[in-house]
Design a protein around this nucleic acid. Structure first.
Lengths: 241, 241
DNA sequence: GCCTTAGACTGACTTCGATCAGTCCACCCT
DNA sequence: AGGGTGGACTGATCGAAGTCAGTCTAAGGC
């Protein structure tokens, strides 16, 4: 229990006591698995549970009336799925597993109880939500003000940092199950252009992405090129002692 | 006290008891005012306070290394300013008052205490944070997948709904102190293009924006055109009894 | 072995929105 | 009255990214 991706993540924010750890444990209810491609939260649906992702990758997205899709973010182990939907009692987005995934269900009621027992956990969850928001903000800046190549560079770096935090990657690279279509929908580009942009990054010797493997050929050059600052993801040590 | 914009907003989520109302009151510390144009939170700065906006408009934005600016969102009365910065112990963005503003300061410690006293308030704040995130997500979709005109239409509608919630606007229009430059930076467009797009919307008889006044000429047509669904902003009544 | 499908990849052409380079007007100053 | 400034507004030109229409390969079905 002490080393699930979630605990690892929350632990970077508040130093968690044994009591708090066991409260977290009570949150994990039923363990469930979902197969790749079948939505587990549907836009417009209400009153479903939230989940904590234990293994696999998922993505949250919105479909516009005209059928266009915008991927909001990808979720990796340790991330909440559908927390916002539960709080707003209505899902403004859908969530789809990209690979087969394992999750544990979290009930809103249990969350409320947990907050009552330990307000520090409330802060930790609020922190996790803030961090998610910071990532969305970063994507907003990406799409609003960065060129296609910078956007892709920034995106690959952010994923790398997030994966590193849960031990699934490092500065030399990581496994990545995303297709170019998925990246296009996340970055507000066409799949065709994603392909061109990946080629450019490869030709300029910064990153390559082939056969589900991202390899940082020149990490520093890439960070510099993308204007990447990981402060919003990790801050090196608990903030609340 | 019972009718500040903040209470009105949180009240749409949880039905607040008198005890909770008074706990909220203890959060409001020093009352302060800031003049238009001078940043009150600065990107990169750490450990400052959060604020609740009492009157006036502000905007949160990020400056990229290359000097480009992306406005993340505009804040209107009842909104938190810099809550995320306090939680992450580091501001990933700046906040600038657009008009002269009045705020009340909130201390993190007080927030933690308040959560201890009433977990329902923790839920309410978490809800407010989720709603902010939902708005950022909507902007992301805007910029990623909508054309410039749809984006503008959606933006003006969203602002209208938010203002209506705090009694500062309705379906026929509202006062709006934003310049075309500010809107450009928020929508990921150039100021020149903002101007053209506003002209088109005016010529097609949907909205006009002149002399600081937004007038919905044909609300339904505009909603339809923008694909606007306000579910993420307001859900008609408290969700937590 | 053949057919289908998913995904990576490419060239040719088009378009949306940026950029450049202004004008015009209202509202300060002094 | 003249000068300065901020914001709204416009036409001309340009370029980044989209769209269209494909090819190629690997994997899976039967």
């Amino acid at each position: 229990m002490k080393n699930t991706p979630l605990v690892r993540k929350l632990g970077t924010f508040v130093a968690l006591s044994d009591v708090e750890l066991s409260v977290i444990e009570t949150l994990h209810k039923r363990r469930r698995t979902f197969v790749a491609g079948r939505d587990l939260v549907h836009q417009g649906q209400s009153d479903q549970a939230a989940y904590i992702l234990a293994s696999g990758w998922a993505c949250s997205y919105k479909i516009l009336p005209d059928g266009e899709r915008q991927i909001i973010d990808f979720q990796i182990p340790g991330d909440f799925l559908g927390l916002r939907s539960v709080l707003l009692h209505m899902s403004d987005h859908s969530i789809e597993p990209i690979t087969d995934i394992e999750v544990s269900e979290v009930m809103v009621g249990d969350l409320l109880d947990a907050f009552g027992k330990t307000p520090r956990l409330a802060m930790a969850v609020l922190w996790a939500a803030s961090r998610d928001e910071a990532m969305v903000v970063e994507h907003l800046v990406d799409i609003g003000r960065r060129t296609a190549i910078e956007r892709m560079a920034h995106f690959l770096l952010e994923l790398g940092s997030r994966l590193a935090l849960v031990g699934m990657g490092n500065k030399s690279g990581y496994q990545c199950p995303l297709t170019q279509y998925l990246m296009a929908d996340a970055l507000g580009l066409s799949a065709v252009h994603v392909n061109r942009v990946l080629r450019q990054l490869r030709e300029e010797g910064m990153v390559s992405f082939r056969d589900g493997l991202v390899v940082f050929e020149n990490y520093n050059k890439l960070v510099d090129f993308a204007g990447f600052d990981e402060a919003y993801l990790d801050h090196g040590g608990p903030l609340l002692a």
